[in-house]
């Protein structure tokens, strides 16, 4: 197995996630794209952990998973609040802070 196989997979997933964040308007879909990005980062962490023979990457991957879970919880609560206030989850409608 080459190091690059895993790193390329991570790169491809990262770029697909970035594309999703740019293209999607629905807030739930943007959160899903962010999950893709976080997973690609985890693949990289574990690849380098194996390459360098250390376990630090595992710890960081676990922390990333925990932070991602917290992020999804708060994010979906915000989406729910947004839906309750304006009956829509389109991110382009949140323009009150526009100058």
């Amino acid at each position: 197995m080459l190091v690059n196989e895993f790193l390329m997979l991570g790169a491809v997933l990262f770029c697909i996630g970035v594309y999703g964040v740019i293209v999607r308007k629905n807030a739930v879909m943007v959160l899903m794209s962010i999950e893709l990005i976080l997973n690609s980062v985890n693949i990289n962490f574990l690849t380098f952990a194996l390459r360098n023979g250390s376990t630090d990457g595992h710890t960081f991957a676990l922390y990333v998973i925990a932070v991602a879970a917290a992020e999804v919880g708060v994010g979906l609560a915000m989406v729910l609040l947004m839906y309750r206030n304006r009956r829509s989850v389109g991110l382009d409608e949140l323009s009150e802070m526009k100058g």
Binding site: L46, A49, A61
Partner: peptide, 17 residues
Amino acid sequence: VLSGAAAQYVLLAAEFV
């Protein structure tokens, strides 16, 4: 995607993750 990532973690010798 997420379960595929879990399988890749097994290939990377990271069972707990």
